[in-house]
Design a protein around this nucleic acid. Sequence first.
DNA 1: CAACCGAATGAATGGTTATTCATTTTTATG
DNA 2: CATAAAAATGAATAACCATTCATTCGGTTG
Lengths: 216, 216
Amino acid sequence: MAAVNAKSNGTPRSMPKQARRKQLIQATIKCIAKNGLSSTTMADVTQQAGLSIGIVNLHFQSKEKLLIETLRYISDEYTEGLNKIYNDKSLNTEKKILAHINFDFSRAIIDRNKLAVWFAFWGETKSRPTYLSICASYVSEIANNLTRLFVLLKQQGDYSDVNPDLVCTCYTALSDGLWLDLLITPKGMKPAQAQAVAMHYLATQFPEHFKNKTEH
Amino acid sequence: MAAVNAKSNGTPRSMPKQARRKQLIQATIKCIAKNGLSSTTMADVTQQAGLSIGIVNLHFQSKEKLLIETLRYISDEYTEGLNKIYNDKSLNTEKKILAHINFDFSRAIIDRNKLAVWFAFWGETKSRPTYLSICASYVSEIANNLTRLFVLLKQQGDYSDVNPDLVCTCYTALSDGLWLDLLITPKGMKPAQAQAVAMHYLATQFPEHFKNKTEH
DNA sequence: CAACCGAATGAATGGTTATTCATTTTTATG
DNA sequence: CATAAAAATGAATAACCATTCATTCGGTTG
């Protein structure tokens, strides 16, 4: 009877430690989306993963550390995806910005399970310095990179009035707000539509580059 | 010894029921901001209010109902504030929009305690239909009113390219995203700055009305 | 195949928390 | 002032939950 779970799960004991951690983190994301952060229990998470109750402490020492790693997981996924774009030498500035927007509204990112996780953690940043510092660090990293792209694009057109810092702040806030729409009005706001709204804003700043390019 | 709290609190027993409920809701907001939704307990809330543990069930029947009323409280405060502006006959369309933006970034609204509450509940909407329906209803009410204002403003200038629905969606998302900045980067983003970013967007759509009006 | 060791299990534990309700305190009434 | 009604209290309860760790399991090695 005992210990049949991991096997029936297609996840043998010999799998690398990292893979089991990932499995638990993904179960945590599902549970937070399904039950809310405030009623996500260890029993929920381990059952969702098809594993036993003691497994979390084996791999994460405590529930709190599992939650922190979960935030870090979605935060890393996001920053790493964007960094790949920033470092892609086959893309020019305009293409990088377009790729950035595409990424912001891509399947993997605007998955409602993950959006629920983002908002749940944001709601707790005020009381958990660790959450806040994870958020603060990805925010500033992305802002630096994105601002740089806007600086470059500014040089490539008649954009003397454009303020790259302002555009970065505005685009980022807009994108976060559209995530909220995707989370709480799933019937009213489709991903493509959200992306079009973001493009609409960029077109106001860089019309020579982004006007009539809402399709992609 | 017993029952000295309410008195020492300056809140006599004879106060209207509604006032005690409000006191408890405000204590709940403080606790959610201080400890996070997931570790806000009845003991925390009642202690914060200077009352006894049994008081919540007397006035709200359960913790869950207290939380729902807390969401309704901040949601009502927001919609009622905006409705006052919409119904103010002394304001023309332009002034109403300006008043709307001022309100969105006013002290009472961008209080970080309340912002933490908004995000905490947003993070739980996927799992709690009641939260979702409260959010959905205020969102659509405000969108209707704000879109109407943009329609009117469009008629007052050379704005044939402006899409009022799109502008409403974009402004609303932007405003929500700026709230996030105010919550998680309190050192980096000041209220006046957030408001300036919002004005910057509106100026792109209605330059005749909102250019160089970032001060107020 | 036997012996070993890391991985996983899950019953047991102890601490926490929402809820209840008999009792006490305060206010209103005649 | 006496009495009743309403409001508030907080000790007690029962349910829940994170964590522990002795035990079991499965893969590996010689």
